[in-house]
């Protein structure tokens, strides 16, 4: 991983059932995005199953250098997806952790490694799943809006899903997508990086906020809740009018003529 785009992935036919892994950030801070993701999937005629015992993919511990702690958290997820259904994750970063880093995390743990691999292979990021598996067609009922999209570094560089969010926005006739300067640059979140290197993180977040504001967009949209916590927190502290919304919430709003 982490050295460029992953090889192209082959996608299954549209299933009748999927699991939704809501992520710890959405569970506590943006449940609306998770509910919207479920609604978008159901709109495709898919039954959405939400295992109530789910908590977190383990990424905070893994990226901070605490593999044992991360394994304990990730291992608690492994038995929650017993059917061979896809696991849809409305976050590129968490999806990347499950699909690409679980095998490394459990490399020396033969008890959990097979399940980690098996589940990881079935993990799809939400926009990736909508575009490549569902062939989603969006019937845009919203008004004319100028939108700017932020794509997480994991989505862009590990999952290769930076284009699927853009493709979904492009289907919305009333949405004009603005281009930001240095689009591929990190927003400065990086999990515990944001508090362990607060000065550098804040400088990165401020630059990102400035680039987003400069587009004149009315709404910021992202498929990653972690980036949104950081960017929205920064925008709010700056007194900016711009706010970010999870792409699932935004798209569902377009279909219902709300956003």
């Amino acid at each position: 991983m982490s050295t460029g785009m992953p090889p192209p992935r082959s996608y299954p036919a549209k299933p009748a059932d999927v699991y939704l892994f809501g992520t710890c950030v959405l569970d506590l801070f943006d449940p609306e995005a998770g509910v919207s993701a479920a609604a978008l999937l159901e709109r495709e005629g898919i039954r959405v199953h939400y295992p109530p015992e789910q908590t977190c993919c383990g990424q905070p511990g893994y990226t901070s250098g605490f593999p044992e702690e991360a394994r304990r958290v990730a291992a608690a997820q492994l038995s929650l997806f017993p059917e061979p259904w896809p696991v849809v994750v409305p976050s590129g970063s968490c999806a990347g952790m499950m699909r690409l880093n679980w095998p490394a995390l459990f490399a020396d743990d033969p008890q959990h490694l097979p399940a980690a691999r098996a589940v990881g292979e079935r993990v799809f990021e939400l926009t990736e799943f909508l575009v490549h598996v569902c062939g989603t067609r969006l019937d845009d009922r919203g008004g004319s809006r100028k939108v700017v999209l932020h794509t997480s570094c994991t989505a862009r560089r590990e999952m290769g899903t930076h284009l699927t969010g853009r493709a979904l926005l492009a289907q919305c006739a009333g949405v004009e997508t603005a281009q930001q300067a240095r689009e591929a640059e990190c927003c400065g979140f990086g999990g515990t990086f944001s508090v362990r290197q607060p000065d550098i993180s804040a400088a990165m977040a401020a630059d990102k906020a400035e680039a987003l504001e400069a587009t004149g967009a009315e709404v910021l949209v992202s498929a990653d809740a972690g980036c949104l916590l950081n960017i929205n927190g920064t925008l709010e502290k700056r007194g900016s009018r711009l706010r970010g919304q999870h792409i699932a919430t935004f798209l569902l709003g377009r279909l219902e003529g709300r956003s």
Partner: peptide, 12 residues
């Protein structure tokens, strides 16, 4: 070693 958001631009 903590001074990285692990954005992956270097690896890319």
């Amino acid at each position: 070693v903590t001074a990285s958001s692990l954005c992956g631009a270097c690896g890319e």
